[in-house]
């Protein structure tokens, strides 16, 4: 119970800070809107071209906005040396990771929901019949992305070139997730049943499990530096 309460304290604190400052959410919404405008101007009204590239574009939007959001996760801990405070708090440090991960996941899913809604409006995409499958793929893909992103954000938080290092470290590790999510999203948007993409979903679940477990096991060493 103490572990869960400590993790929840981190989620509560991060979401409260974000609600007050709105720094990350505002940046992500405007960035997403900008991306959509660029995509819209580039692709135009050609629906065939759009159908072919939509899954990739959707995940490009998620990844780019996720990079922005995750990269800021530990910046709040640098202010007033709160990082030291986290380190000095007695108890299992992985609870801090779990809390940070849960907070990031919530923020990313909110942004992604808005991004999907904007895609629907901007590109006149019908997701009415496929939204449960689409939601499942998005949630599974986001868990894996956030799990590694949270860990790498902690690793690079104290590094001078963190803006460069963070995506350079993160993106290669995300290849299995990206491959599975784009393929699964493509199939779901074409109206295929989830059973048709079961292999990709299994890969996503396995990658999520591995990334979360690695994050939980290694976070203490990352925090200790």
């Amino acid at each position: 119970m103490t572990y869960a309460r400590r993790a929840w304290a981190v989620v509560w604190k991060d979401l409260l800070v974000e609600r007050r400052s709105k720094e990350t959410l505002n940046a992500l919404f405007f960035f997403s809107l900008l991306l959509l405008f660029v995509f819209q101007f580039t692709l135009g009204p050609d629906r065939e071209r759009l159908a072919a590239v939509l899954p990739g574009l959707l995940w490009l939007g998620f990844i780019l906005s996720g990079l922005l959001g995750l990269g800021r996760t530990f910046l709040v801990e640098r202010e007033n040396d709160c990082w030291e405070g986290l380190l000095l708090a007695p108890g299992d440090k992985s609870a801090i990771y779990v809390g940070k991960l849960a907070g990031n996941l919530l923020l990313m899913l909110v942004v992604e929901a808005v991004l999907v809604a904007m895609f629907v409006v901007f590109f006149n995409v019908d997701v009415g019949g496929v939204w449960p499958g689409l939601a499942l793929v998005i949630v599974l893909g986001t868990i894996g992305f956030a799990a590694v992103g949270t860990l790498f954000a902690a690793m690079t938080a104290q590094v001078r070139a963190r803006e460069l290092l963070f995506p350079v470290l993160l993106l290669p590790v995300q290849v299995p997730i990206l491959l599975a999510t784009v393929k699964a999203t493509e199939a779901v948007l074409l109206g295929e049943p989830l059973a048709a993409v079961a292999d990709w979903l299994k890969l996503l679940v396995a990658a999520d499990l591995i990334y979360v477990v690695v994050g939980v096991l290694t976070f203490e060493f990352v925090l200790e530096g």
């Binding site: 604190k13 800070v17 709160c82």
Partner: peptide, 14 residues
């Protein structure tokens, strides 16, 4: 231990 160093370990927006 209790450490009070240059940073006060407090969050500005709380």
């Amino acid at each position: 231990i209790g450490l009070v160093a240059h940073g006060a370990h407090v969050y500005e927006d709380l």
